[in-house]
Amino acid sequence: MLNLLNEAINRTGIKADKTIKNLNMNLTLKIWRQKNQNDKGGFESYQVSDVSPDMSFLEMIDVLNEDLVKEDKDPVHFDHDCREGICGTCSMVINGRPHGPKEGITTCQLHMRSFSDGDHITIEPWRAKAFPVIKDLVVDRTSFDRIQQAGGYVSVNTGGAPDANEIPIPKRIADEAFDAATCIGCGACVAACKNASAMLFVSAKVSQLAMLPQGQVERKTRVEKMVAQMDEEGFGACTNTGACAAECPKGIDLSNIARLNREYIGAKLKSENVS
């Protein structure tokens, strides 16, 4: 809507700085506030005015926080770091959608031109048993780390690696492995899934290493251990609804989950692990 307006204004030839002013928005935010892990928490409403469409969503909250600090109030705590969509730190469910209404981006890449004047925006933390809320919108995602620690790597010590070109890898395989490897571990898949399942996340790492020759040695034990850890963390099961892939900012494909299932079946049938 705003873009259309912008274009219309541009066509009339009015100076750019005027259009920006005219487009500034007033918004009502409903944000989840929770003092700490033991606090029950609840929603608080805030008004933010004069929001520029060029602001990122997080910058809009920065502005709110500046105001809160000046009023001696605790600013809204949220996770963020790189603010360019690669570190995977930011995590907000905005109007019911992880990373907000636009596809293929993280919250930090969401800009306010995706909203309109007068909008009500509800902001919640990731909700999952395995992602307990630490404070406000900050959640604890170390469960992802523990899944990776269970086997999401190739066991090679530093030094002694063969020449990098010793094993050719077909481009198609390398590209496909790369597609899986682009996962940023943000947890939007878990946040989006009705079961809070981590299958897409786990499948991405399992897939990457299952496809590459370097991952073959530990292929079976890896999937067994990672799936066991995933269960221990309390993530739900996969109902193949596809919500995870639809909300994934990096477009990790559902075919990875099928591959994870295959890897699991293969490992359980063939591995010599009887424990």
Binding site: Y153, V154, V156, T158, G159, A161, P162, D163, A164, N165, P168, I169, P170, K171, A174, D175, A177, F178, A181, Q208, L209, L212, Q214, G215
Partner: peptide, 22 residues
């Protein structure tokens, strides 16, 4: 040069050409 060897051994998916080499 050792870095590239090490990273490939870890499963880092570097870009490859059609012959499968880096």
């Amino acid at each position: 040069t050792n870095i590239i060897d090490q990273c490939v051994a870890q499963g880092v998916p570097f870009a490859r050409d059609y012959g499968g080499l880096l």
